[in-house]
Design a protein around this nucleic acid. Sequence first.
DNA 1: CCGACAACCTGTGAGC
DNA 2: TGCTCACAGGTTGTCG
Length: 277
Amino acid sequence: MPELPEVETTRRGLAPAVEHRVIRRAVVRHRGLRLPVPRGLEQRLAGTRVTSLSRRGKYLLFACTCGNDKTGTLIVHLGMSGRLWLVDAATPAEKHDHFDLEFDNGSVVRLRDPRRFGLVVWQAGDPFRHALLAAIGPEPLTPAFDGEVLHRETRNRSAPIKLILMNSHVVAGVGNIYANEALFQAGIDPRTAARRLSRARCDALATAIKKTLGLAIDAGGSTLRDYVGSDGRAGYFQNQFLVYGRAGEPCTSCGTTIRELRLAQRATCYCPRCQRR
DNA sequence: CCGACAACCTGTGAGC
DNA sequence: TGCTCACAGGTTGTCG
């Protein structure tokens, strides 16, 4: 399911329902996620108040106060197949519903994740001390990320630029779909050795990343297979894909047939005419 | 440090 | 209908 736009859509949907609310109880049905759900997490969360719901890359951060001025953060990642949505407390949990946060008003934030590549962990105090967040790259939609940063980060790298975009230590939150889309927008062949990109092309690419992610967020994210947002509504950015999943179809810009190849075992779609090395 | 690749896990659709 | 295979929105660890 989720790249940055889907996670941000989830955050926006959940925030009004959870911010300033007290967690009545937490339920863990399966601890075997990418990292084990910590023992005792349920006890730690019961009675704590969520002060804010924010996002860093693809991580959702539930900031909590536990009384006695203690603070901590529930860190949630959705992996490949995770969804986090609001249900009524009476809704029965299904097979892959691994985690619930039940609030004092009876609403429940439920994590469903068939592949279990997601994770739920706790970090006391400053959440950015957690190793998962400490080494993460700049947020793509902020001024901390721009063509200059991208240019600097790519100088010593011969790997294809698409792989660099998907490296969360270089820039946070860009996954396979939006890497494909942004490279098309910028007119760059995804196989181009990163170090060969000029400063001007890095500028264009950074701009394309911001634009693509922004448009996708505006559209409520992308719905592939059965993904729906936290409110049960589907996103619709998938209808605006220009290259992803369009192999064999004509380029929207020049009509050339879109091609697909594999880069690091990931589907890579591009227009051989519009995108150059 | 970099890059290639396997691994984690389940579901789905295509092809036979 | 049922089997096998490839593949799916992510990230990390290992090895050369």
